[in-house]
Design a protein around this nucleic acid. Sequence first.
DNA 1: TACATTTGCCTAACGGTGTTAGATTATTTA
DNA 2: TAAATAATCTAACACCGTTAGGCAAATGTA
Lengths: 201, 201
Amino acid sequence: MGSKERILRLKDETRTKILDAALNIVQTEGWQALSMRKIADQIEYTAPIIYEYFSNKDGILLELTRRGYLMLAKDIREARDQHESPEDKMEAMWIAYWNFAFTHKEFYQLMYGVDMVCCTVKNSMAEAENVGSMLGDVIESLFEKKPVSDDDICMKYYTYWSIIHGLISINLVRPNGRTTDELNQQILKDAIKGITLSINS
Amino acid sequence: MGSKERILRLKDETRTKILDAALNIVQTEGWQALSMRKIADQIEYTAPIIYEYFSNKDGILLELTRRGYLMLAKDIREARDQHESPEDKMEAMWIAYWNFAFTHKEFYQLMYGVDMVCCTVKNSMAEAENVGSMLGDVIESLFEKKPVSDDDICMKYYTYWSIIHGLISINLVRPNGRTTDELNQQILKDAIKGITLSINS
DNA sequence: TACATTTGCCTAACGGTGTTAGATTATTTA
DNA sequence: TAAATAATCTAACACCGTTAGGCAAATGTA
């Protein structure tokens, strides 16, 4: 009875097709245009079929969020592993974060609620903790004094995160601002260096 | 023919009632729950009536955005005028900005696209420029070297804005994070002081 | 092979949304 | 009082997320 597996594989394929279709619609028409019927059209089914693969629309968004965090974690991990000193790691990781936000704009919007409909319970997700712990680890290694308290790490983490998330949000929501890419990069790097320097001052 | 004016006044009143109703719904049920029919219910009319006061739903959001910027500008102006030195002004203004975001959470969400449906063309609005120019002026006065280039101001402006907007966004989207108010304030003030110090370093 | 059961997929519908057209009622003007 | 204008409503359109029920094909069983 190998047909069982083949059928399961087919089911998994259409599940993936649903996610791909959703992503495709979002990338071409934006989050507002995403509808169950459009997804169904694209995979050549009718809308109710989707509910056999996801409990509802939020289920689809949740899965896409999960995948987004996995991609982001991969990018940040690779950036980390290409440098030696904590300072270089830190800068590379945040730049990877920054790049992710713009090369996967839709994911970032979904993951961080920038100009997006809230898909409710997206806080306290395991995949998000992963990114956080990696960044937290390197932040800890930036401190010269030991031991480093959780509050110290948390504070610096939020400081980094805030300025970068802020910059990204501003640029995502207002792409017509008069900030060039060069200027943004300059602000970003200066801010990172500044925070990094401030850690042991 | 004083009735003309009375009628105009009545029209203006219902226009305000529409905005108040919209705000009331948003404050109690969130942006997702805002609908034309609910607004109409609250002002004891039917939905099509609203289209004689606003071209569409986005028109309502746009007007609320405008009013939000006016309120924010007022808060920031008052904070500025209660201090003497540029450093104190800067901190007070950004703290006013911060406070506005949380005491008028719905406005901030609308104005800065945090966890919100996009109401499209909300960039390049006159009222937004107002806030920007005020902050820019004080930033310019922080520089010891003269003259200060527009790029210098723009960069520092974005640096300030980013970290604060980022912090706010994080806290708005993830209110269940383990950051206390004290910690947020600490991060905020430290970041402001840091950026301010970095201007003449 | 014949029947019963499960599966896959669809149509139709419910209640909601923003928005528009047309009819109806009330008010003002001549 | 009659005509004209303004104010407001009802009904409808096309969309949305979601659910219920039915049809037809595939599968399991005798």
